[in-house]
Design a binder for these strands. Structure first.
Lengths: 247, 247
DNA sequence: CGGTCATTTGAAATCGTTCAAAAGGAGTGG
DNA sequence: CCACTCCTTTTGAACGATTTCAAATGACCG
C-alpha cells in the first residue's frame, strides 16, 4: 500500500487519480519482508534497487572503525530509501530495519518512469527528497547545539509530527520503535543518559514512552522545550496543499 | 570561471567540450560579489535563483531562537548552492559568505536546461548533489560520535581533500577561511575548546593553521586520527573517471 | 586612537560518560 | 516448564571532556 506515501506527498500537493494509481503500482513491486535488525543495504554495497517502506521502521546508520555507531536518518512508512543512490557506485552508509519491515523493491528506471508520470508528481517526489535533506540539517543543528534534554525532546517531536503526516497517530500517541540504545545512537548520547533524560522529560509532563508507544502529553510545551521550529519539515505550504488544478 | 566545477565533476566523469562549454556559459551569468559576512539567503526567504561559487568560501547555517548557531555545510569554489531549493517555498536555513565571494546567480530553468545538455552532465550534477548529502551524513557522524580532537581533525582533513578535488591546494597547503569561532560553530564546540584542540593537533604534528592557511604535516596520520574514511567523498570511481566515450 | 574581532590562557563548574551491577522480559532448547 | 541467554531498562558513584566565565593580547580599520 502506497497510502502513506500518497498521504505524505499530499501535504505538499494534491495528486490526481492517475498519479495516485501510478504510486500504488509502485508499491506492488517485489514486496519483501525483513526481520528487525536485518540490513537493507550495507556500506560498500552497490545499490541497485531502491525501496519504499510499506510497513515498519528503518534507519540509515554509519559505523566508525572502532564500532561507534551513528544513526543518521529514520524511515517511516511511506518513506523512500535512496531514490537516486545508484548514481554513486558504493553506499557510504548502511540501512537497517528497526522493526519487522515490509518494503517494495523498485528498480531505478521504474521509479524514474513513475516520477515522470506528471510534472506535479515529479515535483512532489523532489519535495520529498529535499525535505529529507532539510531533516539532516536539523539533526546536525541538534547534535551540534542542543542539550541532551532538548535533543531528545526534538527527536520525539519530529517523530510524532512525521508520523502524523502519514496518518500514523492516534490522538497524541504513535508507535516509537527506537529502543533507548537506538535513541542514543540517533542523538549522539549514551543509553544511560538517554534513560535519565527520558525520565526527566516524563517528570516534566512532556511525554512518556511505554512498550514502544509514544504518548505526547503537551505538544506545545514539548515544542518549546525542544526549540522546535516546524518550518524545516515543509509540511503545509502556506494556505495548504496546492490545488489539483494548479500547473 | 567554471573551472573549479568542471574539475570537480571530472572526478566523477570526463566531460566533453560541449558539456564544458555549457558549464562555462553558466558561470558567466549575473556574476555578483559579496563581502565576508553578507548573506546569500536568509532562513525564510523564497529562493528564486541558485548560485555557483566562483571564488571565495561560504556556508550554510541555522540559528536557534536564542542565538546558538550551527554551520551545517561549507561551500568551496565550484560548489553549487541549492540547485533545486526553489521547490521548497521557504529556505529552512541561511547561506552566508565566509570570505569575499564571487558567485554566478543562475535561474532555475537555465540550470535545468544546462543539466539536460547531456545525460552524462545530468548524471554528473546528480553525483554532485548526492555527494553533498553524503557529506552531511558524515558530519552527523562526527558531531554524534567523534571527540573534539577527532572532529576537528576530520573537518580539516575533509576541507583539504575537497580543496584538492578542485585544484585549490599547493602541495599540502590550502586556504582555510574559517576562524576558530566558525570552526566551533561547524563542529558544535566552543571557540575556547577549538583553540586548545588546535594547539594539541599542532603539537602532535598533524597540521597547523596560520593566517587562514592550512598546512597539513602528515596526511596519513591526520586521516588516522580522524578515523577518516575517504569513501564518503565518492571522489574516484574505481579505476578513475568514466571515459568520455561511455554511455 | 578607539573599536571590533580573533586568539589565547587560567580556573571553576557542569553535563554527560564510564563503569558496575541488578532486574525484568522474551525467546529458545532441553 | 525450567534453565539459559540476550536484550533492554534502570540506578549509583566516580570521572572527565567540554563549557563557562573572565581577562589579556594582538591585529586591523576608519
Amino acid at each position: 500500500m502506497a497510502e502513506h506515501l500518497i498521504r505524505k506527498l499530499e501535504n505538499y500537493v494534491s495528486l490526481g487519480a492517475d498519479e495516485k494509481a501510478a504510486l500504488r503500482r509502485l508499491a506492488e513491486r517485489a514486496v519483501t519482508t525483513l526481520d528487525a535488525r536485518q540490513d537493507l543495504y550495507l556500506e560498500g554495497d552497490q545499490p541497485e534497487r531502491m525501496h519504499l517502506v510499506l510497513e515498519g521502521y528503518a534507519c540509515r546508520y554509519k559505523l566508525l572503525e572502532d564500532g561507534r555507531r551513528q544513526i543518521v536518518g529514520l524511515f517511516l512508512p511511506g518513506d523512500l530509501c535512496d531514490a537516486r543512490m545508484f548514481i554513486l557506485r558504493r553506499m557510504d552508509h548502511s540501512v537497517g530495519a528497526l522493526t519487522p519491515l515490509r518494503v517494495a523493491q523498485i528498480d531505478q528506471h521504474v521509479f524514474l518512469d513513475v516520477a515522470d508520470t506528471s510534472p506535479r508528481l515529479t515535483r512532489a517526489l523532489w519535495w520529498n527528497a529535499l525535505v529529507e535533506e532539510s531533516i539532516s540539517r536539523e539533526w546536525l543543528t541538534s547534535l551540534g547545539q542542543r542539550s541532551a534534554y532538548e535533543r531528545i525532546a526534538h527527536l520525539l517531536c519530529e517523530f510524532f509530527l512525521r508520523s502524523r503526516a502519514v496518518a500514523l497517530v492516534n490522538g497524541y500517541s504513535c508507535q516509537m520503535p527506537l529502543t533507548q540504545l537506538q535513541l542514543a545512537d540517533s542523538t549522539g548520547l549514551t543509553a544511560v543518559h538517554v534513560n535519565r533524560t527520558l525520565k526527566a522529560l516524563d517528570a516534566d509532563g512532556l511525554f512518556t514512552i511505554n512498550d514502544r508507544v509514544l504518548h505526547v502529553h503537551d505538544l506545545d510545551r514539548l515544542m518549546n522545550a525542544a526549540m522546535f521550529n516546524i518550518n524545516y519539515l515543509h509540511l503545509s505550504q502556506e494556505g495548504g496543499p496546492l490545488d489539483t488544478n494548479d500547473p
